[in-house]
Simulated scan of single mutants.
Amino acid sequence: MYEIGEHGMGIFGGPREPFSFNMNAEIFIFGISGPIATALAVGYVRYLLKKETRTRQELETLNAQLEDIVAERTAALEARNRELAQVNAELQQLDQLKSDFVSLVSHELRAPLTVINGGVEVALQEADLPPRVQHALQTILGETNHLTHVVQTILDISRLEAGKLQVTCGPVAVRPLLENAIKGTLGASNRPLVWDVDSNLPPLWADEVYTEEVVRNLLRNADKYAPPGTPIHISAHQQRDTIQIAVTDHGPGIPQAELPHIFTRFHRAHTGENAPTGWGLGLYFSRKLTEAQNGSIQVETPVWQDAHAPGTRVTVTLPADITPEA
């Protein structure tokens, strides 16, 4: 109406203007298009509101479903954890029972073995023993000494696992320790030895008795698996504030698949009728004793470029007793 009055009748104070395209366009824009645009905008806003409401409802439904799923899975996981905890407790109890049984049997065996050893040693002092009897007694003494060592190892392992094994560290001379270990294991054999020990090595900071036992275990394994007549290499070198003692043989080596299990209790890399006898405790006990002295132990194989005798090297790393200069 404003546009008609303005253009057609001049009633708003201005001169009367003839109708024109501009007037028609303004009438269309303001009189028709405006309400349509408003209606479209309102409709679109309503559409967005409905869509937002529907989306929110769907999200609420989805959240509720997810909460139900999470609650269900959490309950199942808690039930599974309880089952695993119960199984773990039962396994720990069985392991403790086994350890107690082994310890009890070992204690019961140690006393009669000591009596047998003493009796055989007394019998061997007789001067008029026939050679066959003397040989038999020496065989008995060797086997009882071996069994005594196994029993003592089992007892030490039980005490170590129970935290009752006393490890007393102090300065330990390397060369005398190695010589004593060799004398106690290879003294009666004709096994050639190759020495590679640094001069002027500082002492170890370790328990002398248990460190010598570790070296003895390594020497026994090397002597057990290496062919007769092949040398055993013994080395000791300083690496910063540690000393590395290594025993290397010319034996069959260790299969790569067995390396991750080589320090497992009662595990043996070589089995079968022709395999050397053993209990699978030497390397396990050696690792435990070494770690109790803040050291480490590693196995390397192959060592030599020989398909039939690739060899094995076991290296023990222990702290050196390095006293700062005044």
Rank of each mutant, 00 (worst) to 15 (best):
residue 313 R to I: 02
residue 13 G to P: 01
residue 86 Q to W: 02
residue 263 F to G: 14
residue 187 G to V: 02
residue 41 A to E: 05
residue 140 I to D: 07
residue 268 R to L: 15
residue 208 E to P: 07
residue 200 N to E: 08
residue 72 E to Y: 10
residue 302 P to S: 11
residue 54 R to V: 12
residue 308 H to E: 15
residue 230 T to H: 08
residue 236 A to W: 03
residue 324 P to F: 07
residue 175 R to V: 04
residue 164 K to V: 02
residue 173 A to C: 01
residue 20 S to Y: 02
residue 215 V to D: 04
residue 185 T to L: 06
residue 291 E to W: 01
residue 161 E to P: 10
residue 303 V to G: 05
residue 159 R to F: 10
residue 17 E to D: 04
residue 298 Q to H: 09
residue 125 Q to E: 12
residue 142 G to Q: 11
residue 87 V to Q: 14
residue 119 G to V: 03
residue 166 Q to I: 13
residue 29 I to V: 08
residue 209 V to L: 10
residue 90 E to Y: 03
residue 40 L to F: 13
residue 191 R to F: 06
residue 41 A to W: 11
residue 38 T to C: 00
residue 324 P to W: 03
residue 200 N to H: 08
residue 266 F to C: 02
residue 27 I to S: 06
residue 178 L to W: 08
residue 102 V to S: 10
residue 133 V to P: 00
residue 227 P to K: 09
residue 11 I to L: 08
residue 196 D to C: 03
residue 28 F to A: 13
residue 282 G to E: 09
residue 289 L to S: 02
residue 252 P to F: 06
residue 131 P to W: 07
residue 248 T to N: 11
residue 52 E to V: 12
residue 81 N to F: 09
residue 80 R to N: 10
residue 256 Q to M: 14
residue 84 L to I: 13
residue 152 Q to A: 14
residue 98 K to H: 04
residue 14 G to H: 09
residue 210 Y to I: 02
residue 71 A to T: 14
residue 265 R to M: 12
residue 84 L to K: 13
residue 16 R to W: 00
residue 114 T to S: 15
residue 99 S to V: 01
residue 211 T to I: 08
residue 254 I to A: 10
residue 270 H to N: 05
residue 89 A to F: 00
residue 236 A to S: 09
residue 156 D to R: 07
residue 83 E to K: 12
residue 268 R to T: 12
residue 210 Y to Q: 12
residue 25 A to Q: 07
residue 247 V to S: 13
residue 270 H to A: 10
residue 83 E to Y: 03
residue 274 N to G: 04
residue 147 L to F: 11
residue 261 H to W: 08
residue 105 V to D: 01
residue 154 I to A: 13
residue 278 G to R: 06
residue 295 G to A: 05
residue 287 R to K: 15
residue 320 A to R: 03
residue 257 A to F: 06
residue 33 S to D: 04
residue 31 G to M: 05
residue 84 L to F: 10
residue 222 A to N: 07
